[in-house]
Design a protein around this nucleic acid. Structure first.
Lengths: 356, 356
DNA sequence: CAATCCATGACAACCGATTGCCAAATGTTG
DNA sequence: CAACATTTGGCAATCGGTTGTCATGGATTG
């Protein structure tokens, strides 16, 4: 039997066959462009990424061919060879929390503007999911934006040593952070309530692992002591409207006339529960929320809340991260950014009820 | 001058140097595992992905080494060589629209369960962004879930020929779809309003390019004719609360006593505007929304709306897409899935106001 | 004991780019 | 016109896997 030599097909020949077989167009590669222009693939690569290293006329031909073939670089291959993925991970504890909508949109806009892709991950309020997501992203992203981290300071520092990180609402020395200054807004809220005559006030705390909640409480407690009013801490409560019922009951039971909730979700849940129980807001009880999320303006009554520039915080975090990734751009990159907040007064706060 | 030959460093040697220099641990590769176990890298690859093709004892050694080194495969490299990226793109027109929160969470959960990564893209209600995102995703994702597409039927079909697609709320022959059956709910809503005595009703339409809006209108118009009541179409209005003001004014001006809005955002915006204008809901005007989004239950008054199983729709869409990707799993994959909806009656609808 | 078969694992090509190095081509200068 | 500087562009290695092909060896079988 004669030995039959099967002709070896070149890559492009095989691709052509595959195209014919599948009837489906195959995305163009730099090799296709190189073949058309009669240059090497490496020249095409340079023409598109380091235009100065290539003759202007050659470049023009290559660019024309690229446009002709509708060429877009393969990001996987790019990532593999360059080590840069062009993606940034954004970790949020709960994707259905409206607070993160604006944040996500902020990061999305800024990342897209810089040519990056956003990898959104819902960590389900779990430190384990958060940690494993980070490990995963370490290889598939150039950097990570971590919101309201549930991890320990040590874990965050260790992670930041492996991959550029910017935190939002989580302040750890050595890790760049965007911090929304709600603590200082809490004293505004407190003064607002005091000016309405309230002296017995409750703070409806968020999760124990939330640094934001702790900071707000500390600021609030300090301000309360300063003003000589009583503020008690209740909770913790999960940051969901469903927890608002328990929070409302706890507030009523504690005998306060006003409360400041960890966030708007809890506050809105409280409004619903208080209504169910026939307790009028703000006549019988004043409620202050935090964040000014979607819904805070149209709930019943509209919520007095501490408004944060959330979308801007998202944008700033991306800028800080990108500054870390491309240190070339002049100017030392700030490692800390404090976003101002202010109290937005609506209908859920009012004068203290007259003593019975 | 003597020619100095620089010794060529092996990959691992360089990596070792890099590690030393940067002081940062480098993720393990199959080559590291292969070296430890004294086998070829390809054997390691098979041991981890096609365990049956490898001796059970060899496999055990390899798995042990992998665990030891804390090995996780590099997804870029995997994608490049296998052609599968393990990612699925999810296109939404507006990430800050609460309707998509639940949808996104549904897709996220189901994708994660199947070991896929979700690439979320906000197309900003633009068909161009949508088209270019699809082109981009074609190379970086295995499939795409497109919600409320703004593209033409032809464009969607063409895209579906290039990459597996499942649409949500967009029905195009030849493209698998999950359709939330709001059209049938509109007749429920209509009957609800008729039973309350309303005979002059308006439909506040969504974007012209929204197929959902058109289908709802068609269903509503047909049902209205059937029942012998008058329903007029107003709009179009952008699916945002801000558009609600215009919608409310248009409704008032048209002299109807009830309206059915394209979605809850418009409806909620209408509630706010009507309140501003001193028009009472539902005494002077009844309002029905659609989707039962976050906020529909706590706005003022709580919104009567057509509730959709949004999160489930997200999960189903992922299942359908994965069935397309892995046809091996038995059972013909359905190409169309209709999600049931129902009317949820709350406080924004009431009896028709007595004639003046 | 020879012939056959299957399990096993090594080899090498390949995915689509990037990038260091070097040679050829070009232009400049004395 | 020769010598040199500077562009320009090609070659080939590389990233970290996957996968087709093939050689080896032990077990099964007649």
């Amino acid at each position: 039997m004669a030995i039959v030599t099967v002709p070896v097909l070149s890559r492009s020949e095989r691709n052509a066959m595959a195209m014919q077989a599948a009837g489906t167009e195959r995305p163009a590669t730099i090799h296709d462009i190189a073949a058309i222009c009669g240059v090497a693939a490496s020249t095409v690569s340079r023409a598109l990424s380091t235009p100065d290293r290539v003759n202007i006329r050659t470049r023009a031909r290559i660019e024309a061919a690229a446009a002709e073939l509708n060429y877009t670089p393969n990001s996987q291959a790019k990532a593999l060879s360059s080590g840069r993925t062009g993606a940034v991970g954004v970790l949020v504890p709960d994707i259905t929390n409206p607070f993160y909508f604006d944040l996500i949109r902020g990061t999305q806009l800024q990342l897209k503007a810089a040519g990056y892709t956003q990898l959104l991950v819902d960590t389900e309020e779990s430190d384990e999911v958060e940690a494993s997501s980070m490990e995963q992203l370490r290889k598939s992203a150039d950097g990570i934006i971590v919101t309201a981290s549930r991890l320990s300071d040590e874990a965050l520092l260790a992670a930041a040593a492996k991959i550029p990180i910017v935190t939002i609402n989580r302040d750890v020395a050595g890790v760049p952070a965007v911090v929304i200054d709600t603590p200082s807004a809490t004293s505004q809220a407190l003064d607002h309530l005091i000016s309405l005559g309230h002296t017995r006030i409750a703070y409806m705390a968020g999760p124990l692992t939330s640094q934001s909640s702790t900071l707000r409480w500390n600021a609030l407690a300090a301000a309360a002591e300063d003003r000589g009013v009583e503020v008690r801490r209740l909770g913790p409560f999960a940051p969901k409207t469903q927890s608002g019922a328990a929070a409302a009951d706890a507030a009523v039971h504690s005998g306060v006339s006003a409360c400041i909730a960890f966030n708007d979700l809890i506050a809105i849940g409280m409004l619903q529960r208080l209504r169910e129980r026939g307790i009028r807001v703000p006549e019988d009880m004043s409620v202050v929320g935090c964040d000014d999320i979607f819904g805070a303006d149209f709930c019943n009554p509209p919520l007095t809340t501490m408004a944060s520039p959330i979308e801007e915080a998202g944008r700033v975090s991306v800028s800080m991260l990108l500054a870390q990734l491309n240190p070339l751009a002049g100017g030392g990159s700030r490692s800390r950014s404090l976003m101002p907040t202010h109290l937005t007064v609506r209908g859920s706060t009012g004068p203290v009820p007259p003593a019975v």
